[in-house]
Structures are given as structure tokens and as C-alpha cells.
């Protein structure tokens, strides 16, 4: 089995190698725990053969010159996960009913629930942070020409993710059902309605009819909670599979050292 590379810990923290005069003990608590861990992993691996995938995923190389701008994608992913977690907590208290107290349930979250306002604030501001990060990440890949061969599909999936992120922001805006939410959404669906060809149908679909009714809120809730997040998880999976398979780009100004007769081959 190939050995895992040692983590870069300072020398002082490294475990001392066993001295030759000390008998090797295999019975300490730590040793037992280590073996238990290995056993569990072996058990799972025997049935799934996942360890090869894991190794492929974690120990693939990233090119020389990879800098902090390359963390923007995973930062976006992290913001998405934060939205998912805070969203689940909000869903525990939210009632998606225009007549049955959507507004009141949000009021309850902000005033009555322990840390409710904090979690709602995280969800609200997390949306802004995620949008900023998506645009920065897109800007980075554009600037580095990372959308070019062979990563065209990664880019196309990215654009779909961008649109879905904006759809999340738009549909989420209605859910508190206060004046601001209501009127902004009325305008947004009206704008949708002026769109070419499918515009009016799309607007009718969103509203659940030609008028803005209580069905509208349920539709937005279903889209915000189920449809778009599901699609996003699937697409992020595809995006990340392609990123791992193709490798991330090297910064465009990096050149490989070409082999020349004067180079000595390093072992």
C-alpha cells in the first residue's frame, strides 16, 4: 500500500521513533484506537472500494503556483453549505402559508426562538456573501482563462450554478412576507412577465395564476427549499468531479521548465 505523505508538522511535535532498546508495545490505548479505526475503514473499503477514489481525490497534485485566488471556489462551496445548515434551522420554525402566518412565524424566529435572529441574520447575510464569492470565483476563472480547453464544461455548469444562485436569492426574498418582500417580488414577477416568448408563462407559473395569491408563496417556498437546492447539489457535484478529473489550471503566466540537454535529471 502506498504510504500517505506525512503532514507538515513542526519537528518538535513529531512522534519520536521507537528506541531500539525499548520493546515495541502494541497494546496502548492509542494503538488500540488506531487499529480500531483501520479495521472500520478496511471493513467499509472491502465493501465499497472507496479508498482508491478518496486517495485519487485527496492526493492529486495541484500545479505549482496555485495561489489564494484558487480558494474562492471552495469558499463559495462553504457559503453554500452554511446556507444549507442555517436554512434547515429556519425551516424548523417557518410556516409557508400566506394566510396561516408566514410573517408571524418569521417574527417568532426573530423574537422568540433562542438565537433565532442570529441564525436568520446568518442566512440573510450568507446569501450576500455567497453572491459576492460566486462573482469573484467567476472573475478568477475568467481572468486566468480557465474556461478554455479542456474545462469548457466546468464553465458551462458554473454559469448554471450562477443563475441558480440568483434564483435562490430572488425566491428567498419573498419568504418573510413583509411589505418589502411582497412588493419586490411583485415587481420581479412582472419583469419576468415582460420577457420574450416564455416570459408571461413563466410569470404565471411563479405566481400560480395571473394574480399574486397565497399559492405564490408556496411555490416560491418549494422552489427555494427543494427544487433549486437539489439541482445545485447535483451540479456542484458535477462541477467538482470535473475539477478533480481535469485538475485546476496553473496560473497562466507559469511555464513548465522545458527539458534541455543541460538540465540534469533529478531523481
Amino acid at each position: 500500500m502506498p504510504k500517505l505523505p506525512a503532514p507538515p508538522v513542526p519537528a518538535a511535535l513529531k512522534e519520536a521513533p521507537p528506541r531500539p532498546d525499548e520493546p515495541r508495545t502494541e497494546t496502548g490505548a492509542i494503538e488500540t484506537a488506531k487499529q480500531a479505526g483501520t479495521t472500520v475503514i478496511d471493513w467499509i473499503d472491502e465493501r465499497t472500494s472507496l479508498s482508491g477514489t478518496g486517495r485519487w481525490l485527496m492526493f492529486r497534485k495541484v500545479p505549482k503556483g496555485t495561489n489564494w485566488a484558487y480558494t474562492l471556489g471552495s469558499a463559495t462551496l462553504f457559503a453554500f453549505l452554511s446556507q444549507a445548515v442555517t436554512g434547515v434551522f429556519l425551516a424548523m420554525y417557518y410556516r409557508p402559508s400566506a394566510t396561516g402566518g408566514a410573517y408571524e412565524s418569521v417574527r417568532q424566529i426573530t423574537t422568540g426562538v433562542f438565537l433565532g435572529q442570529f441564525v436568520q441574520g446568518m442566512h440573510l447575510w450568507g446569501a450576500s456573501v455567497m453572491i459576492v464569492l460566486v462573482f469573484l470565483h467567476m472573475g478568477r476563472t475568467f481572468l486566468y482563462g480557465a474556461y478554455k480547453y479542456p474545462r469548457e464544461l466546468t464553465w458551462v455548469i458554473g454559469v448554471v450554478l450562477l443563475i441558480l444562485t440568483m434564483v435562490m436569492a430572488l425566491t428567498g426574498y419573498l419568504l418573510p412576507f413583509d411589505q418589502r418582500a411582497y412588493w419586490a417580488t411583485v415587481v420581479a414577477t412582472n419583469i419576468t412577465g415582460t420577457g420574450p416568448i416564455v416570459g408571461p408563462y413563466l410569470a404565471d407559473f411563479l405566481r400560480g395564476g395571473p394574480e399574486f395569491t397565497t399559492t405564490t408563496l408556496s411555490r416560491f417556498y418549494a422552489i427555494h427549499m427543494l427544487v433549486v437546492p437539489g439541482a445545485m447539489i447535483a451540479l456542484i457535484g458535477a462541477h467538482l468531479y470535473l475539477v478533480s478529473k481535469l485538475g485546476t489550471t496553473a496560473p497562466p503566466w507559469r511555464r513548465a521548465h522545458r527539458e534541455s540537454p543541460f538540465d540534469t535529471v533529478e531523481a
Binding site: V62, P63, T66, W68, T71, F78, A256
Partner: peptide
């Protein structure tokens, strides 16, 4: 070539990503 000159994703890139997170 550039890739083979690079470092493994874990722990180098993961550490940066975690700091960013």
C-alpha cells in the same frame, strides 16, 4: 509537467481552503 511539479491537494490546498472557510 506543471502538475507533476506541484504539491498534493491534501494537505496543502486543503489547508488554504480551510483557512478561507
Amino acid at each position: 509537467i506543471l502538475k507533476s511539479e506541484g504539491k498534493p491537494f491534501f494537505p496543502y490546498a486543503v489547508a488554504k481552503d480551510a483557512a478561507m472557510a
